[in-house]
Computed example of a mutant assay.
Amino acid sequence: MASLSEIAPASAITAPQAAPQAAAEAPRPKLDDVMLSMDVVDTLRHQESLVTRELDEDQREAELIDRLRTIYHNQGIEVPDRILEEGVKALKESRFLYTPPAPSLGTRLAGLWVHRGRIGTVAAALVGLVGAAWIAHAALVDWPRAREHKLQRIEISETLPKGLEAARADVKAQSRDPAADRQADQLVADGSAALGHGDAATAKQAIADLGRLRDQLRQTYQLLIVTRPGVPSGVFRIPGRNPNARNYYLIVEAIGPDNRPIPMAIKSEEDGSTKTVTQWGVRVGQDVYDAVRRDKMEDGIIHNRKVGDKQRGRLDVDYAMRVQSGAITQWQ
Results as ranks from 00 to 15, higher is better:
13 I>Y: 11
16 P>I: 05
19 A>M: 11
20 P>K: 10
21 Q>Y: 15
26 A>T: 12
28 R>P: 00
35 M>R: 14
37 S>T: 15
41 V>L: 02
43 T>D: 07
45 R>V: 11
52 T>D: 15
54 E>R: 12
58 D>P: 06
73 H>W: 09
78 E>C: 06
78 E>Q: 09
84 L>Y: 05
86 E>A: 12
92 K>I: 06
96 F>W: 01
96 F>P: 05
98 Y>W: 10
101 P>Y: 09
104 S>N: 13
110 A>P: 06
110 A>H: 03
116 R>L: 07
117 G>L: 06
118 R>P: 04
121 T>D: 08
123 A>S: 12
134 W>A: 15
135 I>N: 05
136 A>N: 11
138 A>Y: 11
145 R>Q: 12
155 E>I: 08
163 G>N: 08
169 A>K: 02
170 D>T: 02
176 R>I: 11
177 D>K: 05
178 P>H: 08
180 A>R: 07
198 G>A: 00
200 A>T: 00
202 T>A: 08
208 A>W: 07
211 G>L: 02
212 R>V: 04
218 R>T: 12
223 L>S: 06
224 L>E: 08
225 I>S: 02
227 T>S: 08
229 P>A: 15
232 P>R: 04
233 S>Y: 02
238 I>F: 06
244 N>T: 11
264 M>H: 04
270 E>N: 13
279 Q>W: 10
282 V>Q: 00
285 G>P: 01
292 V>R: 00
301 I>W: 11
303 H>F: 08
309 D>I: 02
310 K>L: 07
321 M>H: 09
324 Q>H: 01
329 T>H: 03
